[in-house]
Design a protein around this nucleic acid. Sequence first.
RNA 1: GUGGCCAUGGUGAAGCGGUUAACACUUACGACUGUGACUCGUACAUUCGAGGGUUCGAUCCCCUCUGGCCACCCCA
Length: 415
Amino acid sequence: MAITAIKGFNDILPSEIEKWQHIEKTARDVFGCYGFSEIRVPIMEKTELFCRSIGDATDIVEKEMYTFTDKGDNRVTLRPEGTAGVMRAFIEHKLYAADPVSKLFYMGPMFRYERPQKGRYRQFHQIGAEVTGVSDPKVDAQTLTMLSHFFSELGLDEPSLEINSLGCPECRPAYREILKDFLRQKLDTLCEDCQRRLDTNPLRALDCKVEKCKVATADAPAMLEHLCTACDTHFTETRSYLDLVSTGYRINSRMVRGLDYYTRTTFEMITGLLGSQSAVAAGGRYDGLISDLGGPSVPGIGFAMGVERIALLLDNAKFQTSPALFIVALGEEAQKRAFCLSTELQRAGVSVEFDYEGKSMKSQMRRADKLSCGYTLIIGESELASGVAPLKEMKTGNQFVIALDSKTIAQELKS
RNA sequence: GUGGCCAUGGUGAAGCGGUUAACACUUACGACUGUGACUCGUACAUUCGAGGGUUCGAUCCCCUCUGGCCACCCCA
């Protein structure tokens, strides 16, 4: 039996790579317009970084991390998300000192030891963005607007934006207690999972898919109604700025995020097209994270998008490119000429294909068609003698003779 | 970690106890002696994920293993 890839680790094949590149390019272009710079950080970090940032009690840290002891006896972990590493670098290189506002984006693989299913893999890719240094709600609104902009730039109108506020260390603990009291009264009408989660993660019950939990929590107290004045103002202003630039959103007061560091604004881009994996992007504000990691007291907000999930929403075929020219050569001399000519054209920036094996004209033409080449150039003995050859436009079938000269051909193909 | 479904060629698949293992796509060559697409022809699985069992006989039934998909938990 041949060796296969590790479970949940996927190859991204040539047939889909152009779609991936398109997603990445769109992110670079759109984020660039909003003043973001790319940062590349390692895919492995000290385990402690993730414990501190994501939260020791979260599922990610408790059961999903790829953690090893290396040969120097250090505990290291393949990153399960991007924010922690980026913030570590931000603090380590004191980026806050050079500029009070920093806008960074990153892309790359993340690793979580979960059971794979549709839109969920053990190695998956995220594109994320982080703004640090500003707590003003204009940044929240701008970040969300950029996210929406990215999706519309990709031609995806379907994922819709949902927002919520999780409050801050001032108001969230109190709300948590209020919610717990509420849930305790309904305890026997909740599903087993929610009963178990009551103490560890009561917010989760608001998001439970089990019907009886939905019923039981229908009139549960909402975080949004228990925000402190500062958080309430922040949320209201965020909304007003979103309205000001017509960024569409829906308030979802039951939205829960899985990472401990989130404060105030949280959000998700949701689609109904991916089975149970409905979130294609998600994020929030994390005003306490940087200081928790030993940095200065600087606020932050960011999001991450799941590239595989976005890719599932996009059709491969739309992003495939094909060679501009196929050179059909008949006879050994013509093949030699085709090789030289194609090299000259390639050096001039034209994408060219030709046959390597001296196949029949028919198979060469078939291959040109299969590769969707824009043009074919046919070279045989008479063309070598005359110095001109027929150039055929495949789409229309029109053809005319052209000089066997790379400059002339390159010019013609570019026109 | 738990549950459900599934495993036949390069691909999508039919077959469900005895078949030349259908059909379609892909690929290769040809019909068209130097012009693709459409059409037509020819070729392409000694073998049905692996191992064991039942049977005169197993792709088909049973068991074990492995792999995949989807769902739960959780999450991008």
